[in-house]
Write a protein that binds this DNA or RNA. Structure first.
Lengths: 220, 220
DNA sequence: CTTGACAGCTAATTCAAATTAGCCTAAAAT
DNA sequence: ATTTTAGGCTAATTTGAATTAGCTGTCAAG
């Protein structure tokens, strides 16, 4: 990794731990192994380093959206996969999502930085919301919708069902970001959450029919 | 309100919007209607203002704990109230909790400030976790536990049931903190969430018995 | 009525951190 | 072989916000 990128990397680490204003350019430089003035050979000023991080973040998010998120082609593929999903697979889905968000190094530092800096700049709050609230809800809403269509899950209100699936994951994530010691407990809770979600929404074969009729009457 | 308190009040507002480091003592002074140096007649320095806010926050939290939170006496009272709770009352419980957190002016600004400043100081992260994660989960866990005992709710794992109840509320709260325009939508979602929670966990009379037996077999 | 504490002000002062100036070396390009 | 450029350094300089000095008016207590 060249110096230019190492600066971004170390700056991101520091910003995510202490926030932009509490990080000195000398701190960043020291971590990179150079002196502060040398940073200015690579970036116009401190703000430019921050901006470059945001740009890089947007680039990665877009790239990720291309592979992970909704698009015509994937929807068809995903539909096949999730139509006949088992409880274990649902747990895997949740776990993978959780662990990706939690452990991917960039993702994690970006998220922590956004959490700290989001109130300075309305734009950052928007990025945060899109990335950690709206996009996951929309993507998982689509998957759960497919499972409902396939008769795997009950025909309850899908928006709320998705909230019931994702909100606990989101909450566990914010817990772990603040206190990594709680990670092991969070993982156990995650699994119990998904099992219970599955029990609630996908009950026994015998009940599915029954519940479907009842909830069709009730919802809307 | 005397100047000393108005300083705290305006400082809290500013810190909650922009974070400690991005607020100048001159900003605080201006809002109070005095000049920066005059602040020093009331507080030793900027940090002392921040500390006084935290102290005030802790005082209020303790006070609130005394009235709202678990204690032997209340548990008995609450048990009576929640034993025969209806869906509408459950919605009211959720709504009240949500609206209190959302609209109480101190609570809201404290929460936003903690969100921004929590990574500077491990102590603040702890306060945040206690106030917005652990205490609500513990209190609501108790209430839901009572409802399970009373046969109002199914005998599912109460810890997870509580997560299913509170995590969506927590998530909607963080949405509204970041973008108040989404408040109306969040309130609707809140209500739909609780109705669906109720449908899931407290099904029809006829089913309660049935599900109870089944889940006793399943859970641990 | 005068004294002193209180709470405000303007005008310094301080200080830390960002940034610029200007020099040096190595290696890439011509 | 020389010139240029990239990227590093040390030693200023600038900047901007926090804080201190020291003056002033008001009002309550003695």
């Amino acid at each position: 990794m060249d110096t230019r990128h190492r600066i971004l990397d170390e700056a991101l680490t520091l910003f995510s731990e202490k926030g932009y204003a509490n990080v000195f350019v000398a701190d960043i430089a020291e971590r990179v192994g150079i002196k502060a003035p040398s940073l200015y050979k690579h970036y116009k000023n401190k703000q430019a380093i921050f901006d470059a991080i945001i740009e890089e973040m947007n680039r990665r998010f877009l790239e990720q959206a291309g592979t992970l998120q909704i698009n015509g082609a994937d929807a068809v593929v995903d539909a096949e996969i999730y139509k006949n999903i088992s409880e274990e697979q649902l747990i895997t889905l949740g776990n993978d999502l959780f662990l990706y968000f939690l452990h991917d190094d960039y993702t994690r530092r970006f998220r922590k930085m956004l959490t700290i800096e989001q109130f300075h700049d309305k734009g950052l709050a928007d990025v945060y919301m899109k990335q950690y609230v709206d996009d996951p809800l929309s993507y998982q809403g689509m998957l759960l919708g497919l499972m409902v269509s396939a008769g795997v899950l009950q025909a309850e209100n899908v928006e709320i069902m998705t909230l019931h699936f994702y909100a606990p994951i989101y909450m566990l994530l914010t817990i772990c970001d603040r206190d990594p010691k709680r990670e092991a407990a969070a993982l156990k809770t995650m699994e119990a959450h998904i099992r219970q979600f599955n029990r609630l929404y996908a009950r026994d074969e015998g009940l599915i029919q029954d519940n479907k009729k009842r909830s069709q009457r009730k919802t809307k």
